[in-house]
């Protein structure tokens, strides 16, 4: 049986599906029997899901225009395909 610290050390790899089949089995056995580790696993998984579910905001209008203007100037000075 894996210890809690061994499970903790592999938590991220397990969530990313980057563990061997043997280790996966060991982790799953531990998680089934250890409520603390299970909650830790579940809340870490939810942490990742919450961040993955966020979409970047559109660029503020002023910033979008500023960026386009800076690029336009650069392209005028230095036309594409010439550098």
């Amino acid at each position: 049986m894996l210890t809690c610290s061994e499970v903790l050390a592999e938590l991220s790899n397990y969530l990313d599906n980057e563990v061997s089949a043997e280790l996966r089995q060991g982790l799953e056995e531990h998680l089934k029997d250890c409520p603390n580790c299970w909650v830790l696993f579940d809340t870490t998984r939810k942490t990742i899901q919450i961040f993955r579910g966020t979409e970047p905001y559109p660029l503020p209008e002023g910033l979008h225009d500023k960026l386009q203007e800076a690029l336009r100037k650069r392209m005028e000075q230095d036309p594409p395909g010439q550098n």
């Binding site: 970047p56 905001y57 386009q68």
Partner: peptide, 23 residues
């Protein structure tokens, strides 16, 4: 296309990624 000189192609690359790069 941008390497071949297309301003529009580079502009599209910018539009496609600017939000994520800003984040």
């Amino acid at each position: 296309q941008a390497k071949e000189g297309s301003v529009e192609a580079f502009g599209e690359l910018v539009n496609r990624h600017d939000r994520k790069i800003f984040r």
